[in-house]
Structure formats: structure tokens, C-alpha cells
Amino acid sequence: MAFVIYGAGAIGGVLGARLHSAGFDVKLIARGAHLAAIRSSGLRVESPEGATTVPVPTYGSPSEAGVGPGDVVILTMKGQDTPDALEALREVAGPSTPVVCIQNGVANERLALRLFSHVYGVCVMFPAAHVQPGVVQARSAPVPGILDIGRYPGGIDDGARSVAAALVKAGFVSEPREDIMRWKYRKLIMNLGNAVAALCGPGDDGAKQVTALLQAEGESVLATAGIDVVDAGLDQERRGDILRMPQFEGRAPSGSAVQSLLRGTGSIEADYLNGEIVLLARLHGVEAPGNELVRQLAVVAARERVAPGSVPSGELLEKLSGVISRR
């Protein structure tokens, strides 16, 4: 059995390196300059505990990597890249291939289930960074992340238990959960601030006020949609003090959306985070103007390759007040 880590950025890179170092057969799939750098010099993993270079095999596509019987494919790309990734995967992987979504948002699992019968969701509590080719950072140590897993749309099976055991062996905290999507919807609410951090910049203290407005709107929409969500207090209890993030030399800014703008990728995950709230609102006859505004601004910022911090929080709050008051 091999773990095929599809998307060797921040999450996938650190995860693949940890699994490889724990003795598992791992194949990374990367692209562009990141792929070239890993092939040339190995994958450099930086953390509060130091830096190591891991010689994990890396490929440019699922067809190049190959997916054999018994292999487990772990999706770690951003949500906007999932549809194309699944199309490429189905060309070489059978429909019963286990597909594990270690991704933010709640749309990836449903997309995967359309093509593959054994799909697993993972609630991602995994602070990591990727801003330069060939380098990823684990921001938490000694435990790099909490990765609870469950069968999608619900339940626990041997596949979930097996993956959880492998993650634990690689140094993560992981438990199988029957209700994994309840936890993922709570994480979705938390991730509504990702685009705000990208727009306002990670150092803008006023961004917290903007994020609170978006999260309150998100909570309201989920309640209207009748979606069961884990209580915020229970989520905090699960995290406890497991994740510890001391400073270390060269530590990149936090936030996957911030890192997307820093790398100038041209895309951002807002359509699958803030946009999920917008979609649910439209499906249930209500509005989510705050999340819609931030989603649109973030998509434009990514498309135009604007650096993080292009919209001060005061200006964004004024824009939000305008659209919310017209609701």
C-alpha cells in the first residue's frame, strides 16, 4: 500500500514528509516550480524543531505516479483545484480507490463521491505554510496537526481506522469520527476569515471584527439550512493545547489564502469557503451579502495578483456595512 498525496503544498508536503519518515510508502504529486525544486533537491521541511530535507518520491500527475490496488489517495489541494484533480485521478484509479479529503471546506467530499465509492472527510487542524518552491513549513511542534477522519457522508469503517492509525504513527493526533462533517462545518465557519486575512493582511488587527461579522452570518445561514454543526466550545475542547506554534527563523505568514496571494497563484479558495455560505443562502432563500462581498474581493485580488493587505480593515468594514444595511 502506498499513500498518494495529491497536492504537495503546505498540508500535503508536510503530511507526505511525515508519513515517509514514519516508514510508509509515499508518493507526492506536485506541479510547476515546486515539483522541479523537490526533484532537484528534495523536499525541505521547516518547523520549530529545525529543518530537514526529505527524499520523498514526487511526480507531476496521477498517471505518472500510478495508483495501485490497495493504495490510498489523499487530496490536499485547494477546493478550486479539486474538480480537475479528480478528473485526472479517475483516469488511473479504480472507482473503489479510497479517497481521503484532507482539505478545508465541505464540497470536496461530495465531488469525490460522484466518482469514487470510498470517500473520507478529515477535519483539518494543521497549521502549515508553503511560499517558496521546494519548501514547506510545519508551524506546530511537536504535534504538527489534528486530523480526525470519518467516512463520507457518515460512519466509521476499517479504512478510516487504518488511515487514523497511520497518521498517529506519523506524529499527528487523529481519531475516527462517525460525524466528521459536523466538525468540518465548524471548521468552515472558522475558515471564513481566511479571505479577510488575505485582503487586510495578517497584521491588521481590525480584521478580527470583519471576520466576526462573516462568521455570525455563516452561523445564521447554516441554522437556516438545518445543518448540524459541532458547538464551538466542543471544537475548542478538542483542540485544547495540542497545537503549539513557537516562533522560528524564517517562519512564513499564517493563512492559506495569504500564502496564495504571496505566491501569486492567480486563484484563491474563497469560492469554496465564503462561497459555500453564499451557495447555502441562495439554496434556502436567504442572503449572505457579507460573505459574498468578501468572496468577490478575494477572487479579484487573486486574479490580479495583488499582495496581501490591499484592503485595510476599516475600508472593508465600511463596504460590509453598506451591503449588509441594504439586505
Results as ranks from 00 to 15, higher is better:
Gly23Phe: 13
Gly23Cys: 02
Gly23Met: 06
Phe24Asp: 08
Phe24Cys: 14
Asp25Phe: 14
Asp25Thr: 07
Asp25Trp: 10
Val26Arg: 03
Lys27Glu: 09
Lys27Gln: 15
Leu28Ile: 04
Leu28Met: 12
Leu28Asp: 08
Ile29Thr: 08
Ile29Arg: 00
Ala30Glu: 02
Ala30Lys: 08
Arg31Leu: 04
Gly32Pro: 12
Gly32Ile: 15
Gly32Leu: 15
Ala33Lys: 06
Ala33Trp: 15
Ala33Asn: 15
Ala36Asn: 08
Ala37Ile: 11
Arg39Gln: 06
Ser40Val: 10
Ser40Asp: 15
Ser40Phe: 08
Ser40His: 08
Ser41Glu: 06
Gly42Glu: 07
Gly42Asp: 01
Gly42Ile: 12
Gly42Asn: 04
Leu43His: 09
Leu43Ala: 05
Leu43Met: 03
Leu43Gly: 05
Leu43Ser: 08
Leu43Trp: 07
Leu43Tyr: 10
Arg44Tyr: 00
Val45Leu: 10
Val45Arg: 00
Val45Trp: 00
Glu46Asn: 01
Glu46Trp: 03
Ser47Phe: 02
Pro48Gln: 05
Pro48Trp: 00
Glu49Ser: 00
Gly50Lys: 03
Ala51Trp: 01
Ala51Leu: 12
Thr53Leu: 13
Val54Gly: 11
Val54Lys: 06
Val54Leu: 11
Val54Tyr: 05
Val54Ser: 04
Pro55Glu: 03
Pro55Gly: 03
Val56Ile: 07
Val56Arg: 09
Pro57Thr: 11
Pro57Gln: 03
Thr58Asp: 07
Thr58Pro: 06
Gly60Ser: 13
Ser61Gln: 00
Pro62Ile: 01
Pro62Val: 01
Ser63Pro: 12
Ser63Tyr: 13
Ser63Asn: 09
Ser63Cys: 15
Glu64Ile: 07
Ala65Gly: 07
Gly66Ser: 02
Gly66Gln: 05
Gly66Leu: 10
Val67Pro: 14
Val67Ser: 09
Val67Gln: 02
Val67Cys: 13
Gly68Gln: 15
Gly68Val: 10
Pro69Trp: 01
Pro69Gly: 05
Pro69Arg: 01
Pro69Leu: 02
Gly70Leu: 04
Gly70Lys: 07
Gly70Gln: 12
Gly70Glu: 05
Asp71Val: 14
Asp71Arg: 05
Val72Arg: 05
Val72Gln: 13
Val72Tyr: 09
Val73Trp: 00
Ile74Tyr: 14
Ile74Gln: 09
Ile74Lys: 04
Leu75His: 04
Thr76Gly: 13
Thr76Tyr: 13
Thr76His: 14
Thr76Asn: 06
